[in-house]
């Protein structure tokens, strides 16, 4: 059992090293970021506890993936299997329930621990998943697949938009818009199998243009309810809202370009740092977008003639 956790630790370290970050730096950065975001969340909204619980429980899903569970069942005894599952679940949600206790949300904290224990007996069976219909059939694949994996985030965002309108909280509505667009950005972060670029009868420029058009079109569909609420209920801030919307499109475009700059490899530390830096200083987009654009065109030339 100890070996299993040692192996998990080693594999995580390998992934981080491949990404170009020394593991210790990554762990410390993630920890600081986690505490910073948690503090901000609890400062800014009274629904922080609920959001927090939701995210915490969601993190359990990928631990219960069917193939992994079957593998563990095959190689470990029943007792060891249950111990592993329990330890995994409690450690992945550890920071969530500690922060909740710190913020005196004892009931929610207890709820996360309870779900962590109960889900030991649960397997996330991909094969029994019902097919979620999406409006993105015409131009697969990013939004069809991405939406199905993250649809619960959109439910949360639309709920936040409703609350924002209800309590006239402009910042919360903007947060909801940004969360939608950030989720759309994540659809473009991981590189697809090379086959799915190779199939296109397009040159690199045409391919990037095509992908960008789809990103704009479909991300607009997803954030339309929030945009409409912003325009209708927060009319004094219309220009700011539109500015933020345009900026979010540019972020999605930049993320997509970063992916194709590194393609078929994962986004490296260099592109990762650039993306993080952009969040702090968006004006640099003016320089970064043309740079990444030409780099990605150059890179895609080997696959798309």
């Amino acid at each position: 059992m100890k070996e299993y956790f040692k192996l998990q630790f080693k594999m995580t370290n390998r992934r981080l090293t491949e990404f170009g970050v020394p593991p210790i730096v990554a762990y410390l950065t993630l920890l600081v970021l986690f505490f910073y975001l948690s503090t901000e969340l609890f400062k800014r909204t009274e629904y922080a506890g609920l959001i927090y619980t939701f995210v915490g429980i969601s993190s359990l899903i990928h631990l219960a993936e069917e193939n992994k569970i079957n593998f563990l069942k095959l190689i470990y005894s029943k007792i060891d299997f249950l111990k592993i599952r329990l330890l995994e679940n409690l450690s992945i949600t550890f920071l969530f329930w500690v922060i909740l206790i710190y913020n005196k949300a004892y009931l929610l904290s207890f709820f996360i621990i309870l779900i962590s224990c109960i889900s030991v007996f649960y397997t996330f069976n991909k094969k029994n998943n019902f097919t979620i219909k999406t409006p993105f059939y015409k131009y697969p694949f990013e939004f069809c697949t991405g939406f199905r994996k993250t649809f619960f985030i959109f439910i949360l965002c639309y709920f936040l938009t409703y609350i924002a309108v209800d309590v006239t909280n402009y910042n919360l509505a903007i947060f909801s818009l940004l969360l939608i667009q950030f989720t759309c950005l994540t659809f473009y972060i991981s590189p697809e199998n090379i086959f799915y670029v190779w199939i296109y009868s397009l040159n690199p420029k045409g391919f990037i243009r095509y992908k960008f058009r789809i990103a704009i079109l479909y991300s607009t569909v997803l954030c339309l309810p929030t945009i409409l609420c912003l325009l209708f209920f927060f009319q004094n801030e219309i220009l700011i809202s539109l500015g933020i919307l345009v900026l979010s499109y540019l972020f999605i475009f930049t993320g997509m370009l970063a992916k194709y700059t590194a393609f078929p490899n994962e986004i490296s530390i260099r592109e990762g740092v650039v993306l993080v830096f952009l969040i702090w200083f968006p004006p640099i987009l003016v320089l970064i977008i043309p740079y990444l654009y030409f780099q990605s065109i150059k890179n895609l030339k080997t696959i798309l003639k």
Partner: peptide, 26 residues
Amino acid sequence: FLQTESFFFSKITGREYLQLLCVARK
């Protein structure tokens, strides 16, 4: 090109896969 083991995205339906390959070739 039919590969030995074709890669499929985890949440793509068969219909969407066909649509993707057709759209890619216009």
